[in-house]
Each structure stands twice: as C-alpha cells, then as structure tokens.
Design a protein around this nucleic acid. Structure first.
Lengths: 107, 107
DNA sequence: CTTGATACCTCGGAAGCCGAGGTATAGGAT
DNA sequence: ATCCTATACCTCGGCTTCCGAGGTATCAAG
C-alpha cells in the first residue's frame, strides 16, 4: 500500500515543516495540515517512523521536553537536514516539470 | 528502493503516453522520454510489469503484432483506462497543489 | 560473427507507507 | 467518579512499488 496520497514526498513535507522552527511530532502533523490547506492529514504511523528515519540519517536531531505533564520529543533541522531539504525540493521541482511536460501542460 | 525518481507517478505517465494512440512497451518508454524532455528514462523492469498490472486492472488491453520479424505487444487504453487517467491526473494536480502550498510557493 | 538496437520477460529484494493496536496524561462533561 | 476527547508518543506487520540483474530473441551494420 505504498505511497498513495503523498507521492513519496513525505520527507519533503516533514523537513519543510521544520524549516522555520523546531517542533514535536504531533505539531508537525498539524503544521503540515495547516500549510497544505487540509490537503494532507498525515497518519502518525507514517510520521513517527519517518522522523526516526530522518534523525537516524542525521537530518534531524531531537530532545525530550516536558510540557504540562506531557512528554514531547522536539525535532530540529540539522545543517545536513537543511541541505537535504534543498535537494529534495529541487528533485520535487524536476519531477513537477517532467510530469508537466509529459502531460503536455504549459507547466 | 521504492519510488525514487518518479514519485509514484508511473501509471500516470504510462496511461498518458497511451492517450493519443496505442503503442508497444518499448515505444512507450521512448515516448515518455521524448515527452518529458529526457527527464524520465524508464527502466524496462519498471515498465513491463506495470503494463501487465494495468492490463490486469482493465485499464489497458493488448494484442500481439509482428513487425519485420519482431514481435510486439501493442497496448491500447480502454475506456476504464481513460477514466483512470483522468482520475490520476486529478490526484496529481491535488498533490501538486498541496505540496506547493506546504512549501509556501505561489503554487 | 560480433555488436548494438529493438523487443520482450521474470525474479528478488529494498524502501515506503500506513491500518491496527497499544500506552499515557490532561481537561471537560456527565 | 467516570467517560470522552485531545494530546502525545510508539511498534508491528504487511501490502505495494520500483528496479537492478539477468535472460531470450531478431535484425542490421560493420
């Protein structure tokens, strides 16, 4: 059931949501929902593993925070993550252009 | 190694390449390459199974043809395929819009 | 007779996504 | 007191997608 509504752009969305400031997972989900104008309501079971993966890959780092009795893991974009974001963005734009051309649109 | 350069839009590209007229697999690959302005050079090992899958799903049908000693399987878009193309296209546009919004572009 | 283009195919596995299910706290309603 | 909803984290299991590697065969050119 791979990649469905998202077209493999999950990492791009997550990195992009963390671009301006650090946030915890749940907040990232809301941020993406807000920014995408309700287009994407990411399931937690996609997001949490993805955040772990991105941290593993050195694009994010995290620390625990305690806010009114609830624990949160707050993620921050690393410099590696920032450059990965640029790269992913470029790939997205190329994809966009390629598909546009293939569909015969005026891009 | 799922979905990489293509962002899960393989079906869209294939259906779209067959939109105007029937073609055989190898020709579809060239057509996509041409239309996408060299952006996509689809590997045969992606395309042939995908064509089988689309036929299985009733979006394409095919027949064998013999052209100067070489056998070709020529695929044609079915009416179901045509409506699937429209649907995929719509999904692509929504994705495009959603990502654009999330990235904070002027679409 | 070898090379390159054309033309088809399958196998196996990596990677990606997410439904289902689980844990826990806080706050408001019943 | 109890329940519900929102917040907040997590894993497991499995379907799907894509594609490198490898295989078969014909034809034309060198």
């Amino acid at each position: 059931m791979a990649r469905e509504s998202l077209g493999g752009q999950l990492d791009l969305l997550l990195l992009s949501a963390l671009r301006a400031e650090p946030a915890h997972g749940y907040a990232v989900i809301e941020e993406v929902r807000r920014r995408s104008e309700q287009a994407f309501d990411l399931p937690e079971s996609s997001v949490y593993p993805a955040l772990h993966r991105l941290e593993q890959a050195g694009m994010l780092d995290s620390e625990w925070a305690e806010v009114s009795g609830r624990r949160r893991r707050v993620y921050r974009l690393t410099s590696k993550g920032r450059s990965a974001l640029g790269k992913r963005r470029g790939e997205w734009l190329r994809l966009r252009r390629g598909i546009g051309a293939a569909l015969g649109e005026a891009n």
